[in-house]
Design a protein around this nucleic acid. Structure first.
Length: 577
RNA sequence: GCGUCUGUAGCUCAACGGAUAGAGUGCUCGUCUUCGGAACGAGUGAUGUGGGUUCGAUUCCUGCCAGACGCACCA
């Protein structure tokens, strides 16, 4: 539609002999101003100084003769000049009716585009570390990564999901030291609690490392032993702890609705990266104070120096990253490799990617890093509802508990209650993360950020559930739905809902191009709000309503759009709630 | 000190260089004995600050102020 209008304008300009400017056709902020609009100042930048309004009128005159009676242009109903030089296009009743048919036909595919058809895109996200808790940052990265992956796959790409986990390094040694001091937990408690215990041991070990010289020395010894696997006792604790924490992560992924095809581990990436770095020392990398470093600032003033192999000869995170990236390209050879992390790693990634693109110039344009803000705490409150330290898991459970309380008195089966608390709880959390653009930090305040009213995930779900309920009821009354014959009987007035529905694919494209899930979230909230408005003001299942069928199809297409949109945010649509 | 990111209603967030800067929440008032009230309607209230570019700047450039993050052997 947008292209049609653009072509139309180009044609009109040609007729008038006006040189074309760098114009674009957009949706005006307010629906009163049309479905699409363009600015005369942009259409022909040079002519603007004369009189924009007059010029707009001249163009509209030509546009009107062009659209009159021509086939395939029945979707535009009106063209008007408005404001200081805007040309507004109003779409016709037929257009909206057709678009509802289109939505119903496409169903689950509604909203997809082919911007990256035939491409393979790998998305790495979440990246928690075994032996450490799954914290809030992981939750945030997971929500964003999952949504980005889904948006990417809606653009036609084959999507590969990857997770990268740090199973070696000082943090492991600290945790093992803590476990040695405190002993193994009761093996009959849940995996989640065992993982929590390990997290506490890590915290203890970490504190001792900073305060106790002896502990520090012991931990460093353990660290070496973990690397060379020379100590049977340590190997045993290591294998157990690694498995327990990874299993606990898996339980969280299941609740969150993520699946990974690849799990990469630092222990495996280290030797691969080290080989590459050593082979290029003297060229890309250089020795300095006994370490192998990369002088980023030599290639770009804004970069800095980073150590790739430390003076003890051990590979650092940077080197592992090189191993990881090369492994990804060797195994899957994706057209684009996206990595999602918190913004604290933004500068680090620039340096590592520079080093990598010097080694492999062809990969430079294929590596993409998405940095998101961090979750911060309001007023220094750091405890969960239960008074514990807030981990990603405790936050998730808290959110689910709030929903649980809300449905407790309802007439649902226990299984339904369980399922609803999960789906709605996750949605509250994910939406609060995904509603804002990626750059800035999110202030965490349980009562405020995890909202269930208005601008929230549950609000969107609730609206969808309402739509589903009315469709169910209509079915019970044996009313026809998706009856295209009867679609001809529609009300003259076009609702805001209809004005918004057809825009969904454009929103998905925008989110894809910017790799910003919040565009979808913002749109869905607007859509839900206009549905609720329509719902509140229209009696649909009423005996003498001549437009029942049309309105039911409208509701069904709203439901489909909401469901597909929530899917893109990684949120499930419940049957009831 | 240098670099990156961020400053928009009391609070949490939108706005593709364009029309009267939109939502939610809060507060005030209202709707509804409902096709599901986790709802709808109305009112209230904002671009950190000084320059510049532009017909037009929340958006681009620049100075300052404030905050976050990062700058050599952690991940």
């Amino acid at each position: 539609m947008k292209e049609q209008i653009e072509k139309l304008i180009q044609e009109a300009l040609k007729n008038l002999g006006i040189p074309e400017g760098n114009f674009s056709v957009e949706h005006p902020a307010d629906l009163k101003m049309g479905d699409y609009s363009t600015n005369v100042a942009m259409v022909c930048a040079k002519e603007i100084k004369t009189n924009p309004k007059e010029l707009a009128e001249k163009i509209v005159e030509v546009l009107l003769t062009l659209t009159k009676g021509e086939a395939g242009r029945g979707s535009i109903q009106g063209i008007q000049v408005a404001g200081p030089g805007f040309i507004n296009f109003y779409l016709s009743r037929e257009f909206f009716t057709e678009s509802i048919k289109d939505i119903l036909n496409k169903g689950e595919n509604w909203g997809k585009n082919n911007l990256s058809e035939g491409k393979k895109i790998m998305v790495e996200y979440t990246d928690p570390n075994p032996f450490k808790p799954f914290h809030i940052g992981h939750l945030m990265t997971n929500a964003i990564g999952e949504s980005v992956a889904r948006i990417v796959s809606f653009s036609g790409a084959k999507t590969v999901h990857a997770n990268y986990q740090g199973d070696v390094g000082p943090h492991v040694a600290k945790a093992i030291y803590g476990i040695q001091k405190r002993g193994l937990p009761d093996s009959s408690i849940s995996i989640s609690l065992q993982a929590q215990y390990i997290g506490e041991c890590y915290s203890k070990g970490s504190n001792l490392y900073d305060t106790d010289e002896n502990a520090k020395k012991e931990i460093e010894i353990i660290n070496k032993k973990v690397y060379d696997k020379s100590d049977g006792e340590i190997n045993k604790i290591y294998d157990w702890g690694r498995r327990v924490t990874l299993d606990a992560f898996e339980e969280i992924y299941k609740i969150l609705g993520t699946k990974f095809e690849y799990y990469f581990f630092e222990s495996e990436m280290a030797p691969i990266g080290e080989k590459i770095v050593r082979a290029n020392t003297g060229e890309t990398f250089s020795e300095s104070d006994g370490a192998v470093v990369f002088h980023g600032e030599n290639f770009d003033k804004k970069l800095h120096t980073r150590v790739f192999i430390n003076s003890q000869g051990l590979p650092t995170y940077e080197t592992k990253e090189i191993g990881l990236t090369m492994t990804k390209f060797e195994k899957e050879n994706p057209d684009t490799s996206i990595v999602v992390t918190a913004t604290e790693q933004a500068e680090y990634f620039k340096v590592v990617q520079k080093a990598l693109s010097l080694l492999h110039p062809d990969l430079e344009s294929r590596m993409k890093h998405i940095a998101h803000g961090m979750m911060r705490f309001a007023n220094g409150k750091m405890s969960s509802r239960m008074g514990n330290v807030v981990t990603g898991e405790s936050l998730l459970r808290d959110s689910m508990d709030v929903v649980r309380e809300k449905v407790e008195t309802r007439e649902f089966t226990d299984e339904e209650k369980e399922n609803i608390s999960k789906i709605v709880g996750v949605s509250a959390l994910k939406y609060s993360i995904l509603k804002s653009s990626l750059g800035s930090d999110i202030i965490y305040d349980f009562e405020k950020s995890i909202s269930f009213e208005g601008d929230s995930g549950p609000y969107l779900q609730y609206t969808a559930v309402r739509a589903a309920a009315i469709l169910r009821k209509a079915k019970e009354q044996q009313l026809p739905i998706t009856d295209y014959q009867s679609l001809n009987k529609f009300p003259e007035e076009i609702t805001e809902l209809e004005h918004l529905l057809y825009q969904f694919p454009e929103v998905v494209e925008k989110a894809y191009l910017a790799l910003e899930p919040h565009h979808v979230a913002t749109y869905l909230t607007q859509l839900a709000s206009s549905f609720n408005s329509f719902y509140g003001n229209t009696k649909i299942l009423e005996e003498n309503n001549p437009h029942v069928v049309y309105q039911l199809d409208l509701i069904k297409s709203f439901y489909q759009t909401m469901k597909n949109g929530l899917y893109l945010l990684g949120i499930e649509t419940p049957e009831k709630m």
